[in-house]
Design a binder for these strands. Structure first.
Length: 793
DNA sequence: AGCACGCCGACT
DNA sequence: GTCGGCGTGCTC
């Protein structure tokens, strides 16, 4: 007997576990194959995936036997499963959280096994029945399941390398197919043997098919401008045949070819450097417009030449038509695109193509890091500083760490690219862990750097201007409108929180211990630090200058839109934010409208910061740089620097040069000043010092542990016990921790958290300790219906 | 989640 | 006795 540890997919945390089943030794089963098993008291049929196989019985439970093995070849490679276990351990997630992203999209039940038979193989007499069924079922092996003899034949043919398996995912409710026409193999014989005469139309059809091979019937009729009767006649004459062809739901059709440009000296240096680097990770630091994408394309081209495969990760928001067009245009059909706005069917198609080896490049958002390639040697992560790659509520892994791990397993390389690298990444490059390559020249010849000015909004208040536009921004807006040039007004609201600031002097109330802005809570009239939980009473006068202009800071896109319409009634204004941009379509539409100059002023949030290049935009106004400067997060300065640098780049796309106006109540803040000069290096140096002083990453690693439940009575006790037990275990290590703090209740779920700050070298040790404590309290946690989430920042 | 078990009251 | 309504607890 052998023992299979089976993962049965579900979202219910209480049964999220591996279940052990027996199988006889002679059963052919491998890790990654699907098995049918009896589950629960009623022995319901469930389909699970084998994640590991053991010789010995380890479990104390009464073990059931599997019903059937459903695959002849794993649907997930062993490497990916190993990666799943690694994630589970590193991030202390549920099985579902770590393994679901590795699974094919949709229900694993719907994966069909399609046989491909070597063309020169002649079936034996004993296999004729099988062969007939095979053709009848269009090579779908489903018919095999009920016949033991057929199963043996399949296995034998696989062993003899006559039969290979590819996977097909059916859309729920059946696949869409269309009628297609092709010439019968023996059409020439048929024609000469029966001396068939062809009419004019029939001849056209035959010629067309000779040229094109298999064609959709609808296409044929349309292109040749004929009715279907000649086609029918040809079919009756046994010259052509109709087959069902599946519609490929290709979301990106007719992309213009994108030729690779000749690389400049810097780009060549980076390309060669990355190729020859002996380090696992290379960091490509390139200014906006310096042509990082060209380097990516060249690297991908090189990999394809060697029959290797490549994953290119792009932030969801940066996965613009432009980016996709460049890869599609360069590599055509060998590129698959994965992102959150694909329909279920499109997703199936893309997975299938990757799994069956039909493509070599995947361009996609974070979860594409799990694309099921089997000879993956390169993962490129563009805009690597972007927060979408990091730990998320639902997506519990750090994309860069996972990419590094995957490439470590496959001995491949990771390339991180950014104009504003993550402080952590740049630090690692400085420390020699990564190789660093810089692109400093603008690749587009003639493009000028924009003229950036910072406006002190405190002076505007003194001058009596209480509007959201400074005189200078207002002046420039009207100037550009007159010249029929376009304007972007930007609100950097990412992670916006209710900080309190003084409009007279710019002072912001921060936590005394953490250097993080405090948040105003209206119901208690208190200020509070989201990191350590300490509170202060809300102030009525500024503790710095005594002014009473101290209050919650806030401005939204709607407000900006109203103001613009009031002051410039003739301007055509378009607002772009989460409310107005929900679908892929509307994003493309907004893009098109701006491109076609149907819009004078585009107002938006960080969605605007990336990927949108408009020639005619010559003014970017940042309404209040302070918005992102005071989010309750140690990365506030970095986020601000990144956003301001990127949005400023939007004005520098044309040869006319452009203007950028950054409005702020804290114009002396270093992230604003360095961003205005696009001076990454000095920003990095300064920010690193701040991080060192307050012991934030890269000098530490943060771990948040959340406890949530609908029932408030037990959480606090249990969370405090977990905190106490962890505290006891870590005495002797360099770990700081906050006390337990309650976070705002959302949808009737009470939530508490505490944060641990640990020396990065001890993170694995600390993870083990947390794991141990959670396992120890597991019964209690389950019984009280408390959810525990561990977040690594 | 989904199923069976078992405890209890109501009914034959 | 025994039927069924619903709370409880487990799933290899």
């Amino acid at each position: 007997m052998k023992y299979l540890n089976v993962f049965i997919q579900n979202n219910i945390s209480r049964i999220d576990d591996l279940y052990t089943y027996m199988a006889h030794d002679e059963v052919d089963v491998e890790v990654g194959m699907r098995v049918q098993v009896p589950f629960g008291k009623g022995n319901r049929n469930k389909i699970g995936i084998v994640l590991s196989i053991e010789r010995e019985k380890k479990s104390e439970y009464k073990i059931k036997e599997i019903i059937e093995v459903l695959d002849y070849k794993p649907i997930i490679d062993e490497d990916l499963i190993e990666l799943g276990f690694w994630m589970k351990n590193k991030y202390l997630t549920k099985y579902n959280q770590s393994f679901a992203p590795l699974l094919p999209p949709g229900d694993i039940k719907t994966i069909q096994r399609i046989a491909n038979i070597k063309s020169d193989y002649t079936f034996l007499d004993s296999e004729v029945e099988f062969a007939e069924e095979l053709v009848k079922n269009k090579y779908n092996l489903k018919f095999v399941d009920s016949n033991e003899n057929f199963k043996l034949i399949v296995k034998k043919l696989i062993r003899e390398e006559v039969l290979t398996i590819s996977f097909k995912v059916d859309t729920v409710g059946g696949t869409k197919s269309q009628k297609a026409i092709k010439l019968r193999k023996d059409y020439l014989n048929t024609m000469s043997e029966s001396k068939i005469k062809l009419s004019e139309k029939q001849l056209i059809v035959i010629e067309y098919l000779q040229k094109k091979g298999t064609v959709l019937k609808s296409e044929l009729l349309q292109n040749l401008k004929i009715s279907d009767s000649p086609v029918k006649t040809l079919e009756n004459k046994n010259l052509i045949e109709t087959i069902d062809k599946e519609i490929e739901r290709n979301p990106y059709e007719n992309v213009d070819e994108f030729k690779i440009n000749v690389l400049n000296e810097e780009q060549v240096k980076a390309f060669r450097g990355i190729l020859n680097s002996n380090k696992k990770v290379s960091l490509l630091h390139g200014l906006t417009g310096s042509g990082k994408t060209e380097v990516y394309l060249k690297l991908a081209e090189e990999a394809i030449r060697k029959n290797e495969q490549v994953i290119v990760l792009v932030p969801e928001i940066g996965l613009t038509p432009q980016m996709i067009d460049r890869f599609k245009g360069r590599f055509g059909e060998s590129v698959s695109v994965l992102h959150s706005k694909l329909s279920q069917g499109e997703r199936y198609d893309q997975w299938q193509k990757v799994k069956n080896g039909e493509v070599s490049v995947v361009v996609g958002a974070r979860s594409a890091v799990f694309a099921p390639f089997d000879n993956l040697k390169l993962i490129i992560i563009d805009e690597e500083h972007d927060s979408s790659y990091k730990f998320h509520n639902a997506l519990r892994y750090d994309t860069i760490e996972v990419a590094k791990k995957r490439m470590e397993m496959e001995s491949g390389k990771v390339v991180l690219g950014s104009a504003t690298p993550d402080i952590n990444s740049y630090y690692r490059a400085q420390e020699g862990e990564y190789d660093l390559f810089e692109l400093k020249k603008r690749a587009v010849i003639g493009a000028k750097l924009p003229n950036v000015q910072i406006v002190d909004m405190r002076n505007e208040l003194i001058k009596g201007n209480t509007s959201i536009f400074s005189e200078s921004l207002r002046g420039l807006i009207s100037e550009k409108l007159e010249r029929r040039e376009q304007i972007i007004l930007f609100l950097n609201r990412r992670g916006f929180s209710n900080f309190v600031s003084c409009r007279a002097c710019g002072h912001v109330i921060k936590c005394d211990n953490c250097d993080i802005s405090m948040t105003y809570h209206k119901n208690t009239n208190m200020l509070r630090c989201h990191y350590c939980g300490s509170t202060k009473k809300m102030v009525t006068r500024c503790p710095e200058c005594g002014s009473k202009f101290i209050k919650q800071f806030g401005v939204g896109t709607q407000k900006v839109e109203e103001e613009v319409k009031k002051i410039f009634p003739n301007a055509k204004v378009l607002r772009m934010d989460k409310d107005t941009t929900v679908k892929k379509k509307s994003y493309d539409e907004i893009y098109k409208r701006v491109k076609d100059r149907e819009v004078d002023v585009l107002i938006g949030t960080q969605m605007l910061a990336k990927g949108l290049d408009f020639e005619n935009v010559t003014l970017v106004g940042v309404i209040a740089a302070d918005l992102s400067l005071y989010i309750s997060d140690y990365r506030a300065n970095e986020t601000t620097f990144d956003l301001l640098t990127q949005v400023s780049g939007r004005a520098g796309r044309s040869s006319r040069g452009g203007d950028v106006v950054i409005q702020s109540y804290n114009p002396e803040n270093y992230s604003i000043i360095y961003a205005s000069n696009a001076d990454y290096l000095n920003f990095y140096k300064r920010e690193l010092e701040v991080r060192r002083e307050f012991n934030y990453p890269p000098f530490s690693k943060l771990v948040n542990i959340y406890f949530s439940s609908e029932d408030n009575s037990k959480i606090e006790n249990l969370a405090n016990r977990v905190l106490f037990e962890i505290g006891r275990e870590i005495s002797g290590f360099k770990v700081e921790y906050t006390r337990l703090i309650q976070t705002p209740r959302i949808k009737n779920i009470y939530k508490y958290k505490f944060t641990l700050k640990v020396d990065p070298n001890f993170i694995d040790k600390l993870t083990d300790i947390i794991k141990g404590v959670l396992i120890k309290n597991r019964k209690e946690i389950n019984k009280s219906n408390i959810y525990v989430d561990v977040e690594f920042v």
